[in-house]
């Protein structure tokens, strides 16, 4: 069995697994009064259709023996991968820190850190980053917290 389109194969498996999880979870849905088809009709319909389509995708990904893998993604070069992963981790850390540290400090730190990560690492650039970060943070803070009375974390 020659799997031509690896990504499609994986995707369909993931989808099927997801449907499995949801099927499991749907047992927890309490029907109550079964009114107008009940809360389970639509989800089951959708799950059925998704499962069907995933199966078709699965079969197709296996069947196309001779076609070259076109839909798959080219693994980006290592440098880009590193940047992507780093940015994602940094952003996750930022979001984690937000409720704890408050909006202004966290955003400022994040902006400087991210810009340093992605851009030039010279002292002059650092200063520019700092200024931009400051303006951004204060600007947003002002508009939202003071003008619109929105509560930021």
């Amino acid at each position: 069995m020659h799997i031509a389109e690896k990504s499609d194969f994986c995707s369909s498996l993931i989808l099927l697994a997801l449907m499995g999880f949801c099927w499991n979870e749907s047992g927890n849905i309490d029907q109550g009064i079964n009114f107008a088809l009940g809360p389970l009709f639509f989800p089951y319909l959708l799950m059925g259709l998704i499962t069907l389509c995933s199966l078709i995708l699965l079969v197709r990904s296996v069947g196309r023996g001779r076609a070259p893998a076109s839909g798959g993604a080219a693994i980006a070069d290592r440098k880009t991968f590193f940047y992507r992963a780093a940015l994602l981790c940094l952003s996750a850390a930022y979001i984690l820190a937000l409720p704890l540290g408050g909006y202004a400090p966290c955003t400022f730190v994040y902006l400087v850190a991210a810009m340093t990560l992605l851009g030039k690492r010279a002292v002059k650039s650092l200063l520019i980053y700092g200024v931009i970060a400051l303006c951004m943070t204060c600007g947003v803070q002002y508009v939202f917290a003071d003008l619109l009375h929105l509560f930021l974390p």
């Binding site: 940015l87 937000l98 955003t107 991210a114 992605l118 931009i132 947003v140 930021l152």
Partner: peptide, 29 residues
């Protein structure tokens, strides 16, 4: 290098502001 983080912070604010909910920010991410 500047645009990317700035956009992310704006998106974070946008997601949060809708319902004052950190959950929405995580959903965004």
């Amino acid at each position: 290098s500047v645009l990317c983080p700035v956009i992310i912070t704006l998106c974070v604010v946008g997601s949060y502001a809708l319902n004052s909910s950190m959950t929405d920010v995580w959903v965004f991410f």
